[in-house]
Design a protein around this nucleic acid. Sequence first.
DNA 1: GATCGAATTTGCGCTAGCGCAAAGACACGC
DNA 2: GCGTGTCTTTGCGCTAGCGCAAATTCGATC
Lengths: 234, 234
Amino acid sequence: MPQLDRSLIADLPLFREAKPDELDAVLADARPLRIARDATIFEQEGEAHSFFLLLDGHVRVVKTTPAGDQVIVRYVSAGEMIGIAQAIGRDTYPASAIAAADCVVLVWPTSLWQRFIARIPGFAATTYQAVGVRLQDAQARLVEMATEQVEQRVARALCRLAEQSGRQTEEGLQIDFPISRQDIAEMTGTTLHTVSRLLAAWEGKGIVAGGRQKVTVVEPARLRALAEGRAARD
Amino acid sequence: MPQLDRSLIADLPLFREAKPDELDAVLADARPLRIARDATIFEQEGEAHSFFLLLDGHVRVVKTTPAGDQVIVRYVSAGEMIGIAQAIGRDTYPASAIAAADCVVLVWPTSLWQRFIARIPGFAATTYQAVGVRLQDAQARLVEMATEQVEQRVARALCRLAEQSGRQTEEGLQIDFPISRQDIAEMTGTTLHTVSRLLAAWEGKGIVAGGRQKVTVVEPARLRALAEGRAARD
DNA sequence: GATCGAATTTGCGCTAGCGCAAAGACACGC
DNA sequence: GCGTGTCTTTGCGCTAGCGCAAATTCGATC
């Protein structure tokens, strides 16, 4: 059972307005859980009986088509909630969540959702706002998928990942969890082959550095230029 | 000034739980507005000073990229709200709204949003739920864009339009507002040329019937089969 | 009903990027 | 240290669908 750092949780925007005793009551209802890398947290179309707060690690949210293709809808970082399907009126998860690295989550039964809303001031507002942000994000990606070439989309995806979860190393800004070419392909609607070729080309130009399940952005500015369709000089 | 049918408005899910006098108070604050086809209701990146309820007509919500490409994010039918950017914490519209047919809308100044939330029970819940539905929809389209071929995407778009806004005619299920090949292309991330070719092919098979700014679905079942990737026999 | 402009159709060449396949490279367990 | 499986790289052919351009049709306007 991982040890909870109460003060860290209290600092989350989600609980900014919560009174300490209410927060404690709510935390007492939570079950902390360690989740190993690649383990499934919940399954697409599965019954939504829990919601989660990601305390540590990274989670990949994936949709699978009837044909079996997978698309990565988003990556979740610590401090965000996942599995809040019931918040938007669904009783089944619209996607699967898979630990992209070892994770620590807090789990509540769905039945407590209403109590959350009622007892934690600001919780509803923050949560619904987060849904709005996700909508904006999804629409932005829709526009990108519709108008941009593969190279641009991959560059953009890497920029996002590096900004959201980049760790500074001596080599550059490294993505903080294992990510394969296949994963990048599933974020951008292409194939791992094309991603591999692109990364190889960029590595040749010194923009990124690759590795097994690893990507490091060496020159963020040039990658961003690619992402925005500004032709990189040479 | 169009004449308001109060009972029609009161029947909307949005106001299902509103008390009659509160509803009247809120409607008194509204400015009804006729909007001619192709007129802009609000502009992307424009300051969000109003929100709208679409009473009649159809509205196209469009995002424009820096490169000038347009993508149709969704079509709005009567009874839905538009321009609720401030509800999700933005002070500028993330997209443009253009009347796809002659429209009647109710307009409120953004400053009244909080009053709406406070005075109309169920309004906040319904609205946020609608945002959730849009998110689901956007993610579903993202998956489609990432995994499906153009033919499938166009078939799907037509299915959606026909279901959402189809009017039964002797020829088949006709989309209820003027829609060009270009529009369909902007919904599906392709070009008007490809859409034209696809429609011509389908028309030859008797699945749809075309026309200038007009599409009629003659055999919905076969179109759906195409949309779901089930190979249509011949 | 003649004119004009916008929407649509159609042809043609071209290429981005997919699909398949095979060959490396690396991590991990024994 | 060795084997094994997974991840990655790379080559090669092919095609879906784009871009360009020209011809055509249809509505609207005067």
